[in-house]
């Protein structure tokens, strides 16, 4: 469940634009309130890339001293995001209905 949530948050953030690993990590932990460890995010990105959901590219930005690896959604990743978001909404609806029963 938690793994699915982390993947959903990751794909949702990448939907906006390409991000590098630390940027993604900070947004997932800051905005989404997840507690993703530094040592977890890169293997996850690697697996998602192997699965074809995201793609990566090393970019040298003008104002940065070193290159950064940026990740972006692939068309397959967008489809996966859509499917995972639908599952998430359905699950949230069911849990909300349960919680509201008392």
């Amino acid at each position: 469940m938690n793994k699915g949530v982390v993947e959903l948050a990751l794909l949702a953030i990448l939907q906006e634009r390409a991000h590098y690993g630390l940027e993604l990590l900070d947004r997932m932990n800051g905005e989404a309130g997840l507690e993703v460890a530094d040592g977890t995010i890169y293997p996850l990105l690697h697996r998602m890339e192997t699965g074809g959901f995201i793609t990566s590219e090393w970019v040298i930005e003008a104002d940065q001293a070193r290159p950064r690896k940026y990740y972006a959604l692939t068309p397959q990743g967008r489809m996966e995001l859509k499917a995972m978001a639908a599952e998430w909404r359905d699950l949230s609806k069911r849990i909300n209905a349960l919680v509201g029963k008392d």
Binding site: G21, D38, S56, P67, R68, K69
Partner: peptide, 17 residues
């Protein structure tokens, strides 16, 4: 290629931190 990329990304992450 994968190994180099993972090590470079780790280095980039640590330096950013």
């Amino acid at each position: 290629a994968d190994r180099d990329s993972i090590v470079d990304e780790m280095r980039s992450h640590v330096l950013d931190r």
